[in-house]
Simulated scan of single mutants.
Amino acid sequence: MIEAAMLKVIQETGEGVLVLIDNVEADEFHRSRLTRLEVRRLLGAMAETLLSLSDAVQAAMPEIDWGTWRSVQQGLRVASVDSDELCWDAAHSLVPATLSWLRVYRRSEPALFEFKP
Rank of each mutant, 00 (worst) to 15 (best):
V104T: 15
L102Y: 03
A79S: 15
I21G: 02
P110H: 07
V9L: 07
L99N: 01
V78E: 14
L112T: 03
M1W: 03
A26T: 02
L94R: 02
R103F: 10
D65S: 09
P96D: 08
M6Y: 05
V95W: 00
S108D: 11
F29R: 00
S54P: 03
W69C: 03
E85N: 11
G75I: 03
S93T: 13
A90G: 06
D89F: 02
L18I: 10
S71N: 10
M6T: 04
V57N: 01
L86M: 13
R33M: 08
W88H: 00
H30S: 11
D27V: 08
W88F: 08
A56E: 15
V104S: 13
E12A: 08
V57I: 12
P117H: 07
V24Q: 11
L94H: 00
W69V: 05
T68N: 09
Q74R: 11
V104R: 11
V39Q: 05
F29L: 04
V39A: 08
F29K: 01
G67E: 10
T49E: 07
Y105G: 12
P96T: 06
Y105I: 10
P62V: 05
V95D: 00
R70M: 07
L102R: 02
L76C: 02
S71R: 11
Y105W: 12
H30G: 12
L7Y: 06
F113S: 07
H30Q: 07
I2G: 10
R70A: 14
V9C: 07
R106M: 12
L18Q: 14
M6I: 09
A26N: 04
L53S: 01
V19W: 01
D82W: 07
R106E: 14
Y105H: 08
V57M: 07
N23W: 02
S32W: 00
E63N: 06
C87E: 03
S83E: 04
W101Q: 14
A26M: 10
S52Y: 04
R70T: 11
L7E: 04
P117N: 15
E25A: 10
P62T: 09
W69P: 04
